[in-house]
């Protein structure tokens, strides 16, 4: 499903910062993987490259058989919209939209029928425990609530691959468990491929297939469950 080979990313600057060095791994369809490592080890950077939000310095990425680094800008957008879901570490909700609108916007852009996407968005928000918060604006939601809205938004277009950057970081154990269970359920029911960055691999361990450990921009080790 995903093949990464010799991927590297160096942030330019006065002192260029090699945040990713020669990363190679592959993920099969329907796998639920966590990426762990210390702060600054390059987890977010890796996910950004995989989620087509940034341009790596070297190497290649293929997702669903497509060499994604060779896509044009417009093709990348369409690819993200249709096939990828992305939960940002910093939520990235649109301040001018309510929770519900944030969630259904990607479906609207994809051309889904309005009644259908509203229904689906409500259902997703209810699943993550925000059924009562549909019409709240991000500024009226707690960090954890915003994070769950971001999770629901990432799932609205039934992406083949879901990237989530510490989606449970601000959640209590119970809420975190709800989100992880939701991911696991999706994986089991629809065969979604999931890459999840987390600081707390133990919490996620019951649900996952494999973990990748990063250290200083390199893959330190793989761990099978």
């Amino acid at each position: 499903m995903i093949t990464v080979s010799h991927l590297s990313k160096t942030y330019p600057g006065k002192v260029p910062n090699p945040a990713l060095k020669d990363i190679s791994f592959s993920v099969t369809e329907g796998e639920f993987i966590i990426i762990s490592g210390r702060s600054g080890s390059g987890k977010s950077t890796l996910l950004h490259q995989l989620g087509l939000l940034d341009v790596p310095s070297g190497g290649s990425i293929s997702i669903d058989g497509i060499d994604v680094l060779n896509l044009t800008d417009a093709e990348r957008s369409q690819f993200r919209l249709k096939r990828l879901g992305y939960v940002f570490q910093e939520y990235a909700l649109i301040a001018e939209f309510t929770a519900l609108q944030n969630v259904y916007l990607p479906a609207m852009a994809l051309g889904v029928e309005s009644a259908a996407y509203k229904q689906h968005a409500k259902q997703l928000l209810t699943t993550v425990g925000l059924g009562e918060r549909l019409d709240h604006y991000p500024s009226e939601l707690s960090g954890g609530e915003q994070q769950r809205v971001a999770v629901a938004r990432a799932l609205i277009n039934n992406p083949k691959v879901l990237f989530a950057d510490e989606p449970t970081a601000n959640l209590d154990h119970l809420s975190a468990k709800v989100v992880l269970e939701l991911f696991a359920k999706l994986r089991n029911e629809t065969g979604q491929t999931i890459l999840l960055v987390t600081h707390e691999p133990d919490e996620a361990r019951p649900f996952i297939d494999r973990s990748i450990w990063l250290s200083d921009g390199r893959i330190d080790r793989f761990e099978e469950r």
């Binding site: 993200r80 249709k82 992305y86 990607p106």
Partner: peptide, 11 residues
Amino acid sequence: QIGILKAIGLR
């Protein structure tokens, strides 16, 4: 906002 819209995949 524009960055987020792009990240979501809006053309």
